[in-house]
Design a protein around this nucleic acid. Sequence first.
DNA 1: AGCAAGTTGTGAAATAATTAACAATTTTTC
DNA 2: GAAAAATTGTTAATTATTTCACAACTTGCT
Lengths: 206, 206
Amino acid sequence: MKHLPHKTIERLSQYRRALLICAAKGKTHIFSHEIAKIQHITPVQVRRDIMLIGYTGTLRKGYNIQELIDLIGDIIDTKEGLNVAVVGIGNLGRAMINYFNGKRTKLSIVAGFDSNPDKIDRIYSGVKGYHIDRLAEIIKEENISIAIITVPAGAAPEIADKLVNAGIKGILNYTPKPVQVPSHIYLEEYDMITSLEKVAFFVKTH
Amino acid sequence: MKHLPHKTIERLSQYRRALLICAAKGKTHIFSHEIAKIQHITPVQVRRDIMLIGYTGTLRKGYNIQELIDLIGDIIDTKEGLNVAVVGIGNLGRAMINYFNGKRTKLSIVAGFDSNPDKIDRIYSGVKGYHIDRLAEIIKEENISIAIITVPAGAAPEIADKLVNAGIKGILNYTPKPVQVPSHIYLEEYDMITSLEKVAFFVKTH
DNA sequence: AGCAAGTTGTGAAATAATTAACAATTTTTC
DNA sequence: GAAAAATTGTTAATTATTTCACAACTTGCT
């Protein structure tokens, strides 16, 4: 398999989530147009994505849900799973922890970090809070490879530097302030204000 | 001006945020490569975006920061501003409210909704909490045109229906469950799990 | 003044992503 | 059992987005 488009990766993750729900309902097969409907995309796109990962459905029966779930897992998960840290145990950090709590997934949030002493040594939905000064130590100890930055915007660049020095491999930055990291570290940034402004723009322009 | 690409809209929002910070520091002009560095993109892309909105810089001096901020405002803001509601006053909902609190912007979060009686009639960073049953009423009363869905995933479709019936114009869905809305309503969905899985994928594949 | 370096603006080229079109096949219907 | 309907898989076309390449010009330097 050559490399999959970024957009396809995102959709595969979403397909899998939808498929898990269908599987839980006892459904065994699904058509491309059913997946498409759920995800607001076209059936062709679904078929193309599935083609790209080399899976093949059955004519007039659609795709076997469990097989597809497993195959998507082979592609986007690692066998042993990856450990994740949340840096910034504010509302957003706790929201992330809650989202993951109890979900069966190959990604586990195993630590939270904050500079506020009140938040240290408490357990948030099963995730322990550590002081930010122990970042490097715990990242090594717990074999954490991904960090989610949910601190106040101003602190983001400094946190990013610390994460880089601690040997993190991927960063998901949820602050509105872009951070700079060396190119061997995968960085994804998402900014809620931008999303809201985008909605506003399209509402404005009908 | 013909229509701007979606991606350009997103970047304009981000440029503006970066520019506001620069302006606050007393800077008056900025080069395309400086903006590019901040946003992890190429200078050409910045220049092209700026070209698309019809602004023009000064050779060897770059762009006038304040003029550019104002122009971006003309494009993405509405004159009178738009009112926004947050549906679901959990961690994520409160995170959104805090993000916006105090920012000078044309978007104001003016109401929060929740089904938990403990959350009603309290004020969250200046935003009042209402019971979900009053959704349609308050949306009309406060002239709310955009809603952010931050309820638990299972409740999302039902909330979306209520919002549609209440006459909302745009929806930003932060639950991992896609919702269905009529095509005249602008819908943007963002799923944190997908983003994290995407980071994991690229970490895995180096 | 003349040259070097830096910067914008933009047509053209390249790349990425989506959609159209349709052959091939299976199932259903009569 | 033939015709109609439905569905996948895929090539080709289209559309969207990014990048290249470079002319035009400004500023600084000698």
